[in-house]
Amino acid sequence: MKRDELTIFDSEAVREKLSYPDCIAVVRKAMKALSSGETRQLLRTMLSLGPGRTFAQMPGALGEHDMFGTKTISVFADPRSPGLRRHRGLVVLFEPEEGRPVCVADAEEITHIRTAAATAVATDALARADARTLLIVGTGGQAHTHLKALPLVRDFDRVIIWGRSPEKAAALAAEYAHLNAEPATDLRAAAGVADVICTLTTASEPVVRGEWVKPGTHVNLVGSSGPGPVEVDSALVVNSRYIADSRASALDAAAEFLVARDSGLIEDAHIVGEIGEVLLGRIEGRRSDQDITVYKSLGHAVQDLAAAAHLYRSSLA
C-alpha cells in the first residue's frame, strides 16, 4: 500500500473484515479510554431536514497522538419499510503525524457491528453470570447483529424474539434456530421471563414497561438515539441502576432518562456512571442479583473511529 493511498472499506469489506470478537475487544478498549479521558469527542450534532430525515456528525480523537476523524451520517426513514430507519454515511479517519486522511469506511455497517459489540460489552459487565434467557425486541438490522454478538458473552439457552410484525419475528427466529430462538406474540410475558432484554426499535412510545421486568434483569436500551422517542417507560428507568455509554451524551440525548427527569421522578445523579467506569473498576455495575441494570446506548464517535482504525491497521498488517 502506498503512503498517500486512501484505503476504502465498503459495506461488504466491513462485514468481511470486522469480526464480532475483534470489535467487542476494540469497543471495550474504547469505552475505557473515553471514561479515563484518553480520548476526546464532541456531542453529536444533528440537523433536521424534515420529518424522518436527519443529518448528523460525530467528531472525535482516539488520543492526543492517535488517529482522529468523524462519522457523518444521514438517518432517513426507509420508504420501502415504514417504521424503519437507515443510517447511511461514512467514517473518515486521519493519521496523527501529518493530518492526512487515510481511511474511509461505510458507516452503516460499522454502526451495526460496533453497536451490537458495545451492547455485548455492557451485557458482559452488567448481566448476571447465570443469565440464560435473552429477549430481542425488534426485527431490523440491529436484531441480526445483536443475535451475533450477545451469544459471545453469555451462554443463552433460550432466545425470544418479539416484533410488531409476527411474521418478521417468526422469520428471524427461524433464521437463528441454532440459538434456540423462538418468536413471541405476548411481549409482557416474554419480558417477565427474560434475564437480558435488548430494545432495538424505532418506537416513539414505550414498548416495555417496568412492571413487566423481574428483579435481576439487565436491559439494553439501544433503539432511541435522541430526545423524543422512548422505548421503555419511566418506571423502568426509576427502578434501575442506570449506566450510560457517555454521561454527557445521556444528559443531552437519552430520551427515556430525560422524560423521567423532566417529570421530576429522578435527578441527574440517577446516572450511576459510564460503562467505561465499570470496566475500569471505578464504580460498581451490578451490586446484587436483584438489581435491574440498564445500559443506555447512544453511540460514541470514538467507537466508530476505533472500529475504523482497527480495519485500517489490520489492512496494513
Score class of each variant (00 low, 15 high):
residue 227 P to Q: 01
residue 37 G to L: 02
residue 256 E to K: 09
residue 111 T to L: 03
residue 303 Q to G: 09
residue 315 S to L: 15
residue 286 R to P: 07
residue 237 V to R: 07
residue 255 A to F: 05
residue 297 S to I: 11
residue 232 V to D: 12
residue 57 Q to Y: 12
residue 267 E to G: 15
residue 168 K to C: 01
residue 203 A to M: 04
residue 315 S to Q: 14
residue 181 A to T: 02
residue 146 H to I: 00
residue 309 A to F: 04
residue 31 M to T: 01
residue 304 D to G: 00
residue 146 H to F: 01
residue 149 A to M: 08
residue 264 G to T: 05
residue 79 P to K: 13
residue 124 D to Y: 14
residue 202 T to Y: 09
residue 53 R to P: 02
residue 113 I to A: 05
residue 180 N to P: 01
residue 284 E to D: 06
residue 185 T to K: 02
residue 225 S to R: 15
residue 295 Y to W: 10
residue 198 C to Y: 00
residue 27 V to K: 12
residue 106 D to V: 05
residue 21 P to N: 07
residue 8 I to Y: 15
residue 219 V to S: 13
residue 255 A to E: 04
residue 79 P to I: 07
residue 259 V to C: 03
residue 185 T to Y: 01
residue 121 V to E: 01
residue 60 G to I: 14
residue 223 G to R: 08
residue 223 G to T: 02
residue 185 T to F: 00
residue 298 L to N: 06
residue 216 G to Y: 11
residue 138 G to N: 00
residue 75 V to E: 08
residue 219 V to Y: 03
residue 258 L to M: 15
residue 175 E to D: 10
residue 148 K to Q: 01
residue 293 T to G: 03
residue 262 D to K: 13
residue 245 D to G: 05
residue 167 E to K: 04
residue 99 G to W: 14
residue 106 D to Y: 08
residue 297 S to K: 07
residue 278 V to C: 13
residue 203 A to S: 15
residue 299 G to M: 05
residue 126 L to K: 09
residue 157 D to P: 10
residue 135 L to M: 07
residue 32 K to M: 15
residue 5 E to C: 10
residue 273 G to T: 14
residue 267 E to P: 10
residue 100 R to N: 11
residue 47 L to S: 03
residue 264 G to W: 15
residue 202 T to F: 09
residue 30 A to Y: 12
residue 146 H to Y: 00
residue 283 I to C: 07
residue 289 D to Y: 09
residue 94 F to P: 13
residue 242 Y to R: 06
residue 296 K to T: 02
residue 209 R to S: 05
residue 249 S to C: 02
residue 204 S to G: 14
residue 138 G to V: 00
residue 67 M to E: 13
residue 303 Q to F: 07
residue 38 E to T: 11
residue 194 A to L: 04
residue 284 E to C: 02
residue 124 D to W: 13
residue 208 V to I: 14
residue 155 D to W: 03
residue 61 A to F: 04
residue 316 L to P: 08
residue 94 F to E: 12
residue 291 D to N: 10
residue 141 G to E: 08
residue 273 G to E: 14
residue 207 V to K: 09
residue 250 A to M: 06
residue 278 V to I: 01
residue 129 A to Y: 09
residue 127 A to Y: 02
residue 141 G to I: 03
residue 79 P to S: 15
residue 250 A to G: 02
residue 58 M to H: 14
residue 80 R to N: 12
residue 75 V to Q: 04
residue 210 G to Y: 10
residue 18 L to T: 06
residue 305 L to H: 08
residue 188 R to T: 07
residue 25 A to N: 14
residue 131 A to R: 02
residue 59 P to F: 03
residue 55 F to L: 15
residue 48 S to R: 05
residue 314 S to Q: 11
residue 314 S to I: 05
residue 213 V to I: 15
residue 4 D to K: 02
residue 308 A to N: 10
residue 263 S to Y: 01
residue 207 V to C: 13
residue 204 S to Y: 06
residue 280 L to I: 01
residue 277 E to R: 05
residue 57 Q to P: 00
residue 118 A to P: 01
residue 273 G to C: 09
residue 301 A to C: 06
residue 34 L to Q: 15
residue 242 Y to G: 02
residue 56 A to G: 01
residue 120 A to L: 02
